[in-house]
Structure formats: structure tokens, C-alpha cells
């Protein structure tokens, strides 16, 4: 089966402003050499701490920021930087949609909810007339659990959870196939977060969607995804099926992340792995393994040589010198 989205060696560097004239040009290594595949109907979760490059990765795939090198394929077609002509671009802009983190910031406060939903439909030709668009919008509002009357209201009249539902409706209004959700539930209260997560799962079935779900909460990402990509300082550390995130057969960084998640239970936890220090600057990433100066297993080779991605099992890759390859 052909993947719906395939990313190959994607790299995004941001130049750092020079302080001196003769200084060597330096770059922020935001995303480096990222490759992965997403299949129709699947959900890929991308986790990482702030500064790991997960949002930049999504923005680069969607051509919201030009990529430095590498390629992006959508349904087999090379769509890197959306260099596909005006008609192709318009199609991609409707088939690849994004739901943002902050529903307060992503809705125009002076635009009625309905207008905000209808506008992309008319631009992308999903509806011929305003009346048709309105009918579709009302139908979608009902699908996500809002009453159609909200069409004529303004964003300030809604709670965070309701606004996120509106953000989802707007993304769905142009019949997307692939939905990028960048921290889409992070700003919500836990009880609302549960409602929205369930909604995402229902909509996936109903509209045959494929998700790329970006977040920092490992528990949420694991819950919603079937494949998980762990990023650190712009590089992929591990790609694993959701049920194989535990145990010693994972990347040391993944182990540290899993162990850092505070669990809401009174059962005593096993040994916690406490990482020292902060994420280093992506301007001067450590040579060798990106994670070497915080890793509890690091040895000399880790500081000298960058490890490659090693296939350790079915749909499971780890970037570590000590990973055991699958037979």
C-alpha cells in the first residue's frame, strides 16, 4: 500500500544573524534528516519537548515555511514546498488541513463563526453559493456537537472547548484527507480534553481522515496515535508502534520521557529516570548523538559518532548505538 504522506530526509535550517562580519554562518538546526511514512487511516503522533522541532516539521510539510532540503510526497506525488502549480496548490490547501493549539488566537474576533467556516469553503470551491455553504457549515457544526444557531455568533461567546470544536469544523469544511493537529488539546481542561479526543476519533471514522498529531503530552499522544515518532533537537530518536513505548527496548530518551510523566495513581512507580540539564541549543547541537550529553547510557562512541536509525522490529526504528537490530 502506498503511504498517503511520505517524508524523506526533510531538513529545515534557520540562519542565525551574524554578530561579526567575518563570522562563519551559523544555523539553527530545527529539523534535520527526518523521514517517515503515514498510511491512510492511521494516526502518527509526534512527541518532543519544546525546541525539538515538531511544529517546524509540520509547517515545513505544509509549505508554511520553505524546506532547506529533502522531499515530501503526498499520495505518491512530490509536493515539496507545494511546487505543484496554482490548481494543485489549491487542492493541497484543502486536502491538507491544520487544527491549531490556541482556539482563542486562531479565530478572527470580529468575524462571525459561520463566516469563518464558510469563507474557506467558497474559496476552495467546496460550495458554489453562500446558501449551500451555510447549509454544509450548519451540518458540520451539528456533527461536532454544536447547535447550528451558533453560526451567527462571535468567538468571544464560546468557551475554549467550543472554540476548539469550531476550529475543527473549519478544518473539516474543505473536505481534508490529512489533518495536522498541532497541540490541539493542550490548552483544554482535562474533562474537555477527553471530549475533544473522543471527537477526533469519531471524526476519523466518519470522514476517513488520517491524522498527524503533534504534542508534548506523551499520554495523550499515545492514546490517539497508532505510530509514534519521538523527536529530540530536530532529529527523530525513535519511531515505534504505540504499544511498544515501554521497556528497555526503546530509546533512552523515550525511556526518560515515559518515566517523567507523572501518573495519576497511588501505585508506587518504578525507578524514575531523572534527566539532568535542559535541551541544548539547536544552534550548536552536540556532535555525535544529539542526546549524548543528557543520556544515562552514553559512552565514548556516542560523543564521537552519530548513530543511524536501526530497525529493531515491525514498524519500529531507534536511533541509538545500543539498539538491537531485528533479525
Amino acid at each position: 500500500m502506498e503511504p498517503i504522506l511520505k517524508v524523506e530526509g526533510l531538513t529545515k535550517l534557520f540562519p542565525v544573524k551574524k554578530q561579526k562580519l567575518l563570522e562563519e554562518r551559523r544555523f539553527v538546526h530545527a529539523v534535520e534528516d527526518v523521514s517517515f511514512e503515514v498510511y491512510q487511516g492511521g494516526t502518527l503522533g509526534i512527541v518532543g519537548e519544546s525546541g525539538s522541532g515538531k511544529s517546524t516539521l509540520a509547517r515545513a510539510i505544509l509549505a508554511l515555511t520553505p524546506v532547506t532540503s529533502g522531499s515530501v510526497f503526498y499520495q505518491g506525488e512530490d509536493i515539496t514546498n507545494f511546487r505543484v502549480g496554482a490548481a494543485g496548490k489549491r487542492r493541497l490547501r484543502s486536502e491538507l488541513q491544520m487544527v491549531f493549539q490556541d482556539p482563542y488566537a486562531s479565530l478572527n474576533p470580529r468575524m462571525k463563526i459561520g463566516e469563518a467556516i464558510v469563507e474557506p469553503m467558497l474559496i476552495n470551491g467546496q460550495a458554489k453559493t453562500r446558501a449551500e455553504a451555510r447549509e454544509k457549515a450548519c451540518h458540520l457544526l451539528e456533527t461536532v456537537g454544536l447547535r447550528p444557531e451558533v453560526y451567527d455568533r462571535f468567538p468571544y461567546e464560546f468557551s475554549g472547548g467550543q472554540r476548539q470544536r469550531i476550529g475543527i469544523v473549519r478544518a473539516l469544511s474543505v473536505n481534508p484527507k490529512l489533518l495536522f493537529c498541532d497541540e490541539s488539546v493542550s490548552a483544554l481542561d482535562v474533562s474537555v480534553q477527553a471530549q475533544i479526543l473522543n471527537l477526533f476519533n469519531e471524526l476519523k471514522e466518519r470522514f476517513h481522515l488520517t491524522y498527524v498529531f503533534i504534542g508534548h503530552d506523551l499520554a495523550v499522544i499515545r492514546y490517539i496515535s497508532d505510530q509514534i515518532l519521538v523527536m529530540y533537537l530536530g532529529k527523530i530518536m525513535e519511531i515505534a508502534p504505540y504499544d511498544q513505548l515501554f521497556g528497555e527496548h526503546t530509546h533512552p530518551y523515550t525511556q526518560a520521557l515515559v518515566s517523567a510523566v507523572p501518573e495519576p495513581s497511588t501505585a508506587g512507580r518504578s525507578q524514575r529516570i531523572l534527566l539532568e540539564g535542559d535541551i541544548p541549543s539547536p544552534v550548536n547541537p552536540p556532535r555525535g548523538c544529539r542526546f549524548c550529553n543528557r543520556c544515562f547510557q552514553a559512552e565514548e562512541i556516542c560523543r564521537q559518532e552519530e548513530p543511524q536509525m536501526i530497525k529493531t522490529g515491525e514498524r519500529h526504528w531507534i536511533r541509538c548505538h545500543f539498539a538491537k537490530p531485528a533479525h
Binding site: E49, L257, A260, V261, P262, L275, E276
Partner: peptide, 8 residues
């Protein structure tokens, strides 16, 4: 804060 920092 990030989870690893939160743990610290």
C-alpha cells in the same frame, strides 16, 4: 514546563 523539566 516540559515533562523532563517538570520531573526535575
Amino acid at each position: 514546563l516540559d515533562v523532563t523539566i517538570q520531573a526535575q
